[in-house]
Design a protein around this nucleic acid. Sequence first.
DNA 1: TCAACCAAGTTATGCTTCGTAACGAACACT
DNA 2: AGTGTTCGTTACGAAGCATAACTTGGTTGA
Lengths: 253, 253
Amino acid sequence: MTAAPIENAQPERALPTRRERTRAATIDEIKGIALRLMHEQGTTDVRFSDIAREMGMTAPALYRYFADRDELLTAMIVDAFDDLGAVVAAARDDVPVGDPTGRLFAVAQAYRSWAHSEPQRFALILGMPVPGYAAPEEGPTTEAARRAMFQLKSLFFDAADQGVLRPPLLRYVHESLRTCFDAEAAAKPPGEPALPADTFQACLHSWAALHGFTCLEAYGHLDFLPPEARDALFASTIRLVATTAGLPLPSSA
Amino acid sequence: MTAAPIENAQPERALPTRRERTRAATIDEIKGIALRLMHEQGTTDVRFSDIAREMGMTAPALYRYFADRDELLTAMIVDAFDDLGAVVAAARDDVPVGDPTGRLFAVAQAYRSWAHSEPQRFALILGMPVPGYAAPEEGPTTEAARRAMFQLKSLFFDAADQGVLRPPLLRYVHESLRTCFDAEAAAKPPGEPALPADTFQACLHSWAALHGFTCLEAYGHLDFLPPEARDALFASTIRLVATTAGLPLPSSA
DNA sequence: TCAACCAAGTTATGCTTCGTAACGAACACT
DNA sequence: AGTGTTCGTTACGAAGCATAACTTGGTTGA
C-alpha cells in the first residue's frame, strides 16, 4: 500500500499539510479495507457500502475520495502492479547476479506465490477486466504494468550482461516478430544492450509458460494435484523454461 | 448451445411432450441471450432483467427456468466446457492421426481462437470464479471440465499409440508427480495404454504454455504486438512445445 | 362438455446497491 | 471572531435480485 495520494499528486515541495496527511491515510485505509474484503470474499467485486461499513462510515462519504467504483479499481490496479513488481524485484535481487537461473527461479516463484496468495489482485491486473470496469486507455495502469513487467524482463538483460546467455533452443524468429523486437530495442536508450531477437522471443515464451502455470494454479485448476506435486511441476516447468531459453543449467535449485 | 434441459433430465423414453419442448426451447433461448449479452457487454456479469427485457418478458418469469443467477451460470459453464471440448475435438480430428504435431497445432489453435473470440466464456470456465458465484463442488461443471480437458490430452494418447512419441526433453519427474500420474493411470481401464510419466509431465507443461499464451492474448495483454506477430509468437510457442514434449518435428505448419 | 389442475407469466413488494443532492459540523487561515 | 473549505451526515431516486400473490390459458379427467 503506497502512500501516494490519488489526486492532487503535484509535488508539494515536501510540505504535506496535516489535512493532506490524514486524507492520504484515509485513502490508504479505503484501499486496504477494499483489499481485505476482496480477499475475504474471494472476488474482485467490492461494494462501496461494505467498505464504508467496515470503516464505520456511510457510503456516500467514500465519494469524497474516489469519484466512483472505477476510480478505486484503477488505484488498486496500479497498487497491485507496483506490489507485484516490487515482490518480483526483491526476489530477483536476493539471488546474486552471477546466477541467472537462480534468479529466474526466484522471479518465477515470486510471481507464482504472489498470484496464489492473492488471486483477486492477480485477476485484477492480469485476468479479465472486471465487470463494468473499462481501463482508462493509456492511463496510469498501463504505466504501472510496464514497470512491473520490466522487472521480469530485466533478468534476461542481466544475464546477457554477464555473458552467460546461450542461444535459445528455438532460433527461428518470424519476420513480424523481429520487426517488433527491433522497434522496441530502438526505443531504448542507445547505450543499453539489446537482446538478440531469438532470446527476446524466448523471453515471451517463458512469460507465457510461467503465466499459464500461475493462472491455472491460482484459480484452482490444478487442485487435482497435491501441493508437493504442484511444486514439483512448477520446478520442472521453470527448469524447462530455463533450458529452452538458453540460461545456464540450474545451479541452486 | 446443446438442447439438453437443465432439470428433469431423466430419460423420457424419447417422448418429449409439447410443453417440455417449448420449455427446453425457452431455456436455450435464455442461455443464448445471456451469451449474446455477455459478448456485447464484454463481461461475465449477466443481469436477469436485461435478459428478460431482450426476450420481451419480465424478470421474475426467468425464475421459472433457473432458480437463481448461479444456476444459470452453472448451465452456461457446462455449455462452455462442452463447446470448447467439441471445438477442440473437431479441430483435432480434421488432421490425420499420423500427424501428431499437426494435431497439436490444430488443437492449440482451436483452444486459442475459441478463447480469443469468446473471452467471456473462457474466463467463465478457466478464469477466476465469477463474483458471487460458488461452483457446486463435484457437480456437473467438474464433469464437463474433465470431458473437455480429455480432448486436449487424447492427442498424446494417440501419438503414443502411433509409436511416434519420443521422450520429452525433460526426463526427470519428481516423486510426488510420479505418484499422481501412476494413480491416474491406475484408475483407467487396464487395456488403455498409459503414458510414461515424463510425457505426462510434458503434457502438463504443454497445457500451461498454451494456456498462458491464450490467457495473455484473450485478455489483451499481448496487444502491444500486432496480430501477425501474435500469430508468429503462437506458432513458435507451439513449435517449442512440440519439440520439448517429444512430438515429431512440424510436418504441415 | 365442464371443472379442476398446472405451468407460465404478470404486477406488486422488500431489500440492497450505486450514485447524487442538500445539509451540518469541524477545522484552517485571516 | 469570521469565512471558506473539507469531511461527514441524512435523504433521495434509479436499478437489480428475489419472493409473493394473482391471472391466464392449455391439459387432463370425470
